[in-house]
């Protein structure tokens, strides 16, 4: 079987995001990651939620599931448990994954299913045309916060670290090659990988300039297995470090299930036990 060429992962569907949207870069980076890993399109499932992330599955020639608002992880975990050999990539947003779907993340982290989830964090509800999200900064004026957002934002990477995800990376679509590599690393990782993408929304929350000025790639001396180092890294104020922040080897959901004692039984003896 020949390795699919880079163009073979993209479908003829062209998403209609705003000009300058970070999603275009992320789409390209995912395509590059699939190519880097030489995945077969029929072995990949891209699962999206609701928001600007929703159309991602249609951009690929792989399998896909466009689910409900906030429910990427429930569906993705079901797919993963039924067919553990598939490569499953979830695509969610800051509202999708941390507001309506925020209850799912700690549980996915503790089960450690073998799937990657990319969270496109643009700090705004963009598809509904600009309301404050869980990651919108204090004081930001939006249509639904005309005098400035009154709530403190959450930091997705900090929260993921607290939830003890076994893989955490942060990337930026302005660095598509770097992001592609992070996504590839996340897909390759055995366990639950969260990839936090700092994703500018030029229409409702334009952070291109701010992020471009502040991001800095994590150097080779950094040890992603050291949680204390990860904590320090995420507390940096002047810079926004991007790269693999946490990488820990822990049994996956599948491996934990296999630990269960072999109790193979035939259906007839199960029935007879009710006599």
């Amino acid at each position: 079987m020949t390795t699919p060429g880079i163009g073979e992962y993209r479908s003829d569907y062209n998403p209609s995001w705003c000009p300058g949207c970070g999603d275009y870069g992320v789409l390209k980076s995912i395509e590059m990651a699939f190519h880097e890993l030489a995945l077969l399109p029929e072995q990949v499932v891209v699962v999206s939620g609701i928001g600007c992330n929703g159309r991602f599955p249609h951009g690929f020639t792989t399998y896909g599931f466009h689910t409900l608002h906030g429910r990427v992880l429930p569906i993705a975990q079901g797919i993963s448990m039924a067919k553990p050999r598939l490569s499953i990539v979830g695509i969610s947003g800051d509202g999708d994954a941390f507001a309506i779907g925020g209850g799912h993340l700690p549980h996915a982290a503790r089960r450690n299913p073998d799937l990657a989830c990319i969270v496109l964090d643009n700090g705004i509800y963009a598809q509904t045309k600009g309301q404050p999200s869980p990651t919108t900064s204090l004081g930001v004026k939006t249509k639904a916060s005309p005098t400035g957002n009154q709530e403190d934002p959450i930091d997705i990477s900090q929260l993921a670290l607290a939830y003890h995800v076994s893989f955490l990376a942060r990337g930026f679509p302005g660095k598509p090659n770097h992001l592609a590599h992070l996504i590839a690393e996340g897909i390759k990782h055995r366990g639950f990988a969260l990839i936090h993408v700092l994703n500018p929304c030029p229409t409702f929350h334009d952070t291109w300039k701010e992020y471009s000025a502040k991001i800095s790639e994590i150097g080779p001396e950094y040890d992603a297995t050291d949680l204390e180092a990860a904590r320090k890294l995420l507390e940096e104020k002047d810079k926004i470090p991007i790269g693999v922040i946490v990488k820990q080897d822990r049994p996956t959901q599948e491996e934990r299930a296999e630990i269960a004692p072999d109790s193979s039984s035939d259906i007839k003896s199960i029935f007879a036990s009710f006599r």
Partner: peptide, 8 residues
């Protein structure tokens, strides 16, 4: 959701 994912 997981049941639907598994069935898919």
């Amino acid at each position: 959701g997981a049941a639907i994912g598994a069935s898919y």
